[in-house]
Amino acid sequence: MGKKLYINTTINGEAVEFLCEPRQSLLEIFRDHLGMTGTKEGCNDGNCGACNVIIDGVLMNSCLIFAVEAQDRKIVTIEGLASPQGLHPLQQKFLEHASLQCGICTPGFLVAAKALLDQNPDPTEHEVRHWLAGNLCRCTGYDKIVRAVLDAANVAPNTETSLQSSN
C-alpha cells in the first residue's frame, strides 16, 4: 500500500519523469522534488490560486491534484511563460503596471491570466475580474493586476504564448 509510482508527464514542453507517493500533490513534486519553485504554495486547500498551473489547456490548482494524476498530461507552469527572447507580455505588463508587491501570488495570477488570454484574447474588464476571482492578493488591491492583464491583451497577439504552450 502506498508504494511509490513512476510517472511520465510533459512539463513546459519537456518530457519529465518522477517517482512519487500517491498522497503527494503535484505542487509538492514541483517544489520539493523537481526544483521548480516558481509555483507557490499559498493556502494549500484550493482557495488562493497561488499554485495555478495549466493542464491540457485547463487552469487548475496544483495543490488539489495528486501528482500521480499527471501521468500522460501536458502541464504549463510559471517557468514556461518567459522565453529565451525575453519576458512573456503578461510578465512585462505586470512590471510596467507595478502589479506586484510581495510577489507570492504573482505566478498564480500570471498563469491564470495566460489561461484566460489563450482562450479569450480580448476579454472585458468584467471577464478578467471574474476569471481572476479565484486568485487572492493581499498587497495590490487587484486593480493594477486587472489593468496589466487588459493591457497585455491589447499588445500581445500571443505568438510567444503559443510557442511556449504545450496545447
Binding site: L59, N61, I65, A112, W131, A133, G134
Partner: peptide, 9 residues
C-alpha cells in the same frame, strides 16, 4: 462553484 481553477477540476 469556486473559481475558474476549481471549475477546471
Amino acid at each position: 462553484i469556486g473559481g475558474i481553477q476549481i471549475q477546471g477540476r
